[in-house]
Design a protein around this nucleic acid. Structure first.
Lengths: 159, 159
DNA sequence: TTTCGGCTGGGCAGATTGTTCAGTGGAACA
DNA sequence: TGTTCCACTGAACAATCTGCCCAGCCGAAA
């Protein structure tokens, strides 16, 4: 279930320099190549590492505006709304949350004006009762995982 | 600024099979290796590709519970709160949004009970007036970028 | 004591990388 | 029209890394 210190250091190294290969990884970890290979395989096939997809910056694609929208869904319309939102490219992420039929989605747009178009498209379906949007101004903590990995590796060490 | 069709296809290929190398990439794109190399370099150094960090599943680390917390911040306390939240490993992401001193952060926890501990730690600082938390139940659309890449490549083609 | 799984250290052929080069073709420009 | 610039092609090179194999070591569990 958890990860040990070696796994933790491996993940940290990968997070810092994702392009390094297994050989270099093994050198820095101070273990044999086969070991690094085996650990990496285990983390990957075990689901701890979902993948190494490129982290694309929407701003560089021409979508500098990010927003979060909270949607209130009419009872029983969840499936339709989910399917609808999945077809909107500007919807980067969608979660269903606690609360009466609530969803939270992350949107991007070409401009604040364009955001209106995106929102109109998002709510353009029966089943969404109400939507409230918060535009992102700053991102003081970008999506990160290393601190949590450290924590997890630390905790499992005590066991 | 934008990306052309070749860039778009390159990003799609990378998103589907992140471990393929430049040579294989060039083969699938039907271009010379140098071209694929140059495009990739340009996308990377230009900021369109932030990196290839491993996508770690918090659940595999023992943190299966995800939540979003909306924080209302007292005027002028923003910096302190940001600094505080940055020290909490369970805070995976933090945004400041429109609205009077609002922030939105993504949290993970070991369990629903553990979430209480995390929230207590998050709000354990002067400057947070109010916090409301939504626990994630499902994730119908996991963080994705390919549809947007397609859109962006499509749009730039017309120009 | 025996068995097992994880780790080490080594070797091998084959593939990939980083790098450089000369040549081609189209677009912009005087 | 002629020139220049830039992106792309196709090829070569040494160096490196990968996938795969093996035998041996060691601690933990049975």
């Amino acid at each position: 279930m958890g990860i040990d210190r070696l796994d933790g250091r491996l993940l940290e190294l990968l997070a810092e320099e994702p392009r390094i290969g297994v050989l270099e990884l093994s050198r820095r970890l101070g273990v044999a190549r086969g070991t690094a290979q085996a650990r990496l395989d285990r983390l990957t096939s075990g689901g701890a590492i979902r993948g190494f997809g490129p982290q694309v910056d929407p701003a560089a694609l021409g979508y500098p505006v990010t927003a979060f929208a909270t949607l209130e869904i009419r009872q029983g319309q969840g499936a339709e709304v989910r399917a609808h939102l999945a077809t909107v490219p500007e919807v980067l992420e969608l979660h269903t949350t606690t609360g009466s039929g609530d969803m939270l989605c992350r949107l991007v747009a070409r401009s604040n004006a364009d955001l209106q178009r995106v929102i109109d498209r998002v709510v353009g379906i029966e089943g969404i009762v109400r939507a409230s949007t918060a535009i992102v101004m700053e991102n003081p903590v970008p999506l990160r995982i290393v601190p949590l990995v450290r924590q997890a590796a630390q905790d499992s060490a005590g066991q």
